[in-house]
Simulated assay, not measured.
Amino acid sequence: MAGGRHRNTTGPHKGGARRAENSRIYAHPLPIIFHNPFPNGVRSLLGLLGLSLNEVVNPHCEGYLDVATKSVWITDPRSSKVLWKKGFFGKGDLSRSEPSWLARQINDRKAGRTGLTSEQLREKRRAERKQFKLDRAQAIAATAAEAEAIFETEGRIIVPALSGPDIPSGATWKPPPAFEASRSVVELPLQMGQEDDDYIEDIEHLQLTLCEAFFLAWNLDCLTIIDPHADEPLTLEQLWTTFQHINLAPPIPNSPPLRLQLDNPFLVHYAAYHHYRSLGWVVKNGLKFCVDYLLYKRGPVFTHAEFAVVVCPVYEDPADQENSTVNLQNASAFAWSWLGTVNRVNSQVMKTLILSYVTIPSRSRVSSDIMTSPACFSKYSVREVVVRRFIPARMRD
């Protein structure tokens, strides 16, 4: 996931080659590709006649359902690459976003032969800053003790200095030799005839949320989800009921099976996810910024997220909320302090906060038979409220 956005002050041509390369790699917003094998002249003629002979290229991917983490695991590297590069679906379980653990390991192994890797340099700088603070604190304490001793023996009052030749500063401090020796890195040589890439096993997998997995399986039909216990693919009907039961409390032994409800957390969050995905946004998890979703125009590799979304369930019939066995997050009125905190966090990272109100249809209006299929999503509605932080010094006009 991306951090706060920084203003570009280096001109429009900064990083142009990198942007062009990203535009080539991530040219397709979804795994489904419409390809026309005919030359431009034939395509223009067919367009004038109102005809289209596009071929639909739909890659097939497989994943395993993991109930414990409420996610779907894509273990095939090819499928992981397809889903990430064509829509930015999922997250690497050993990476911040893109599943790049293997590439990082290979690069770090190569960098280790000539110097420190990026992670080692970061840890080295952190250790140096910590040691600098300790040395500075000890020097200040020694100066204060010397001033106290002069006052006791000579009666003179000396104000302890916070700077000077005896107090280390960021410009004059250097790590002591003992510190450098303790932080040295020893690189183990490779065996004869063994290459870096040969013995590094890719142990990372792509992790899809339930909303992402259902969107790929139901709307795009490019993902097959396998039950890890039976090792058999789950049908759409089984996915529909399983994903809802995963988000409910575990059933009590010898109790009747839990019935499907309109206020199931999976249904509420998927309604918001499907709403923004259908409008062309790249939707990613927003837990880092205390929200449910982050909205990207094209994807994390191009720009930072512009909008942060908090899903707020709203019951069409208040009686349904009183009789519900599900405790939906943000369904009740939240405190102004909470709203101010979330808004301030996202304002600091240049994101606009959006409260996405998902209206849950009334049980009296909707038949229980509609809960057996995704057709019930037609009864949900989504409306947004933009929250902006008021800054008097900047908004006088």
Results as ranks from 00 to 15, higher is better:
D292Q: 00
H229A: 13
E55H: 13
I252N: 00
P37H: 01
L328N: 03
L121F: 07
Y296L: 09
N22S: 12
L267E: 06
E55I: 14
R277S: 05
L210S: 02
G280F: 08
L258P: 01
P177R: 12
C211D: 08
A171Q: 12
L216K: 07
R363Y: 00
F289C: 07
S44F: 11
V185I: 15
E146S: 05
S332Q: 15
L48H: 13
L328T: 03
T153R: 15
Y273K: 00
L294T: 01
N8D: 10
I33Q: 02
A178Y: 14
S163I: 11
F377S: 04
I33Y: 01
S373E: 09
A230F: 09
D198N: 05
T352Y: 13
D196Y: 12
E180T: 13
F88V: 06
N54A: 11
S163G: 10
Q329M: 08
G50V: 06
V326H: 02
I158F: 05
A144I: 07
L134A: 13
T235H: 10
C290N: 14
G50S: 08
Y315V: 09
R113M: 09
R126K: 05
Y199I: 14
S381K: 10
H35T: 01
E119W: 04
P251K: 06
I225W: 01
L210T: 01
T153W: 04
I150G: 07
A144Y: 04
P374R: 01
L65V: 12
L239P: 03
G4W: 13
S71W: 12
V311T: 06
M395L: 02
D292P: 03
N327H: 11
T341A: 14
E306W: 05
G164H: 07
K351S: 09
N58A: 15
N107V: 01
N323D: 10
I225M: 04
R388C: 06
G90P: 15
V366Q: 00
T352K: 13
G170R: 06
L190C: 02
S373K: 08
E180L: 15
R109G: 07
K70Y: 00
R344P: 01
R298T: 13
P251Q: 05
R122Y: 07
Y380L: 02
S184A: 14
